[in-house]
């Protein structure tokens, strides 16, 4: 995996996670349980793809090797993607989709809120723009977690199973590395410890309201999204998402 300077690495992590989560949501197109749900899933997906473009535009400017945001999105291999392992997981049933969305929204919300104060002006600008949208996303996914968790016996069981499947990937919200340490020291991103606490509080509150139990902290896993070591699901997602640009490079219409 090619390595860039710390800020660029961080921009790729943000952009890739938003893009992969957006792409997963779009897989629901034409398959959602109700028309209103379909529009909501697509709207959230669209916001995330737009946010990804903002992050990747900035990353492309810094990489400065002639590639733009589209090239970064459509011509990088799985090994060069820095997204969270959580967001590449398959959609599963609606309980898995909404739990995944909620865990990611809660993390995005607290992270973006802190990033609006970033020492880097462009990071602060993208964060302020994204935050307005993510507040809506978090509100909606929290409501779904509560409704399904505190719903019927079956919906509760499905939510518990979904959290059981996904929780292991949340260790990535908490782990620091050289990039995180250096950027938080220079005031570009928030302190990882404080962020972890805020995320845990939000998750614990919503899970409790939803009568779901809050699992113990997830432990490290042998894979790492930001190191480009992904689960087997990302490659398949990229194969579909990148098909056109791979088969017909630079196609336009």
């Amino acid at each position: 995996m090619k390595k860039y300077d710390e800020l660029t690495e961080f921009l790729l992590r943000m952009g890739d996670s938003a893009l992969v989560q957006g792409q997963r949501l779009c897989e629901w197109c034409g398959r959602a349980p109700a028309l209103e749900e379909e529009m909501a899933l697509m709207n959230v997906g669209l916001d995330l793809v737009g946010q990804a473009r903002n992050w990747l535009d900035y990353a492309a400017q810094r990489i400065n090797d002639g590639r733009d945001a589209d090239m970064l999105a459509f011509r990088r291999d799985e090994r060069d993607y820095r997204n969270l392992l959580l967001v590449e997981q398959p959609n599963g049933d609606f309980a898995v989709t909404m739990s995944k969305q909620f865990l990611y929204d809660a993390w995005q919300f607290h992270l973006l809120e802190a990033l609006t104060e970033s020492a880097d002006q462009q990071v602060a600008a993208i964060a302020a723009k994204s935050l307005k949208e993510v507040i809506y996303h978090l509100r909606r996914s929290s409501e779904w977690v509560e409704r399904l968790g505190d719903g019927t016996e079956e919906s509760h069981q499905r939510m518990a199973a979904a959290i059981d499947t996904l929780w292991r990937f949340t260790f990535e919200f908490q782990e620091t590395d050289a990039v995180v340490d250096s950027l938080s020291e220079s005031g570009i991103i928030p302190d990882a410890g404080a962020l972890k606490q805020q995320w845990q509080q939000t998750v614990a509150k919503v899970f409790t309201d939803a009568t779901l139990s809050v699992p113990e902290d997830a432990r490290s896993f042998y894979l790492s999204g930001r190191e480009g070591m992904h689960t087997e699901h990302l490659g398949i997602l990229l194969a579909e998402m990148q098909f056109l640009q791979r088969a017909y490079p630079d196609a336009s219409w």
């Binding site: 209103e36 909501a40 709207n43 669209l46 507040i135 809506y136 909606r140």
Partner: peptide, 28 residues
């Protein structure tokens, strides 16, 4: 932003007796 929106008046009859069907509509 956190959902405490004020009264939304119907653009057709101006009634404030309205309710939200979905937080996401035909466009973002």
């Amino acid at each position: 932003l956190l959902g405490e929106s004020g009264e939304v008046h119907c653009p057709h009859c101006d009634s404030s007796n309205t309710r939200q069907l979905s937080e996401f509509g035909s466009t973002a």
